[in-house]
Design a protein around this nucleic acid. Structure first.
Lengths: 190, 190
DNA sequence: CGGTCCTGTTAATGCTCATTAACATCGGAG
DNA sequence: CTCCGATGTTAATGAGCATTAACAGGACCG
């Protein structure tokens, strides 16, 4: 029994993110995951060493994508104000496109085993430092701890997206989040 | 074996919030909860009908406290600008004082059984509507769905507190959050 | 005193679930 | 055509854990 694109694996990752976001890591069984991609539970072990490793890979993937996207945006915009806007729009686009990933991302890190968790944290920290560096260029007099905290808080604001079930259409929501986040971030610098 | 204050029950609720916040509902066993308050696991059943009911009570308590506090603040400030500031400061104080409660509050609702969940949601919605009403008085021309979403996003910002491990001291953090949230909220109204 | 409620304790009970075993099937390489 | 590796399937296995049973002591009330 072969899949056309050859990516049962990718399908599992996608389904896992969705299910973990909706019901929480511990409440999703291996059998649930198998069923979601049209196989039985144990088939999963042909693709991943175990349930926790699967979660780790989901989180690793998210963190890497965010960091890579951030790096690209920063590189593409020499002016820090432009870079900041690009970071904001990029993060918002990601959050709107992949609410499940965003949800899992800050909810389930706790269930990842020690070693991959360290790596994920490193990536998350690197992503955050990108923001801090850009922000520091815009607000040179504000102490770094303040900037770091402000960026953290901004992530909280942006990642609230999945909880705001569609009262607004995508574009208005994106615009609203952009405005709020940008003003909040700049207000943080005194 | 009697407890002096007679509140084994309250101790369990406190410990549960702490443990659920740190490790997640499903990862905390009845035995863990018992041990945390100096008894064995099953003793818990003398105070709560079960683990889910215990979680429900924790969340109910939080939601009620936030709503009550909000009501008081709104009642105490006829001017909507003052009321908004009071709501902000109140929420921030709560989040800083009880990071565990805040964490559990928006992470574990999913594990609460149907019936209490409805009640908790109603309280959360009522709390949110308090903010929306006050904000609407300050920004009369902004459509309600925008205000609602903005308040949601602001909660995301404020509740990020537990994740910002102490880079800043309490007072600076509170002030920073206040400034960011206030500007974001007001910027939302065009 | 004697009984009853309250709160604990330890020892079942049963279920869910991750993981592994043992056994198919199929497609492609030779 | 045949063999092998990749991928599935179903049936153990075993652990963890919520919940319940059965039993005990102490406080308070009469």
């Amino acid at each position: 029994m072969r899949t056309r694109g050859g990516d049962r694996r990718a399908a599992i990752l996608r389904a896992a993110a969705e299910l973990f976001a909706a019901r929480g890591f511990r409440s999703v069984s291996i059998e649930d995951l198998g069923r979601a991609v049209g196989t039985t539970g144990p088939a999963l072990y042909r693709h991943f060493p175990g349930k926790e490793a699967l979660l780790a890979e989901v989180l690793l993937d998210i963190s890497e994508r965010l960091l890579r996207q951030g790096t690209e945006h920063v590189a593409a915009h020499p002016d820090p104000n432009d870079a900041l806007d690009a970071l904001l729009r990029g993060h918002i686009a990601f959050a709107l496109a992949e609410p499940a990933l965003i949800t899992v991302h800050d909810r389930e890190l706790l269930h990842v085993p020690e070693e991959p968790r360290r790596k994920i944290r490193r990536l998350q920290r690197a992503y955050l430092e990108q923001w801090v560096d850009v922000l520091a260029a815009v607000r040179p007099t504000t102490p770094t701890p303040v900037l770091r905290t402000a960026v953290h808080a901004t992530f909280g604001l942006l990642n609230s997206t999945p909880h705001s079930a569609g009262e607004l259409d995508r574009d208005h929501l994106a615009e609203l989040l952009f405005t709020m986040a940008r003003t909040a971030l700049l207000a943080a610098g005194k």
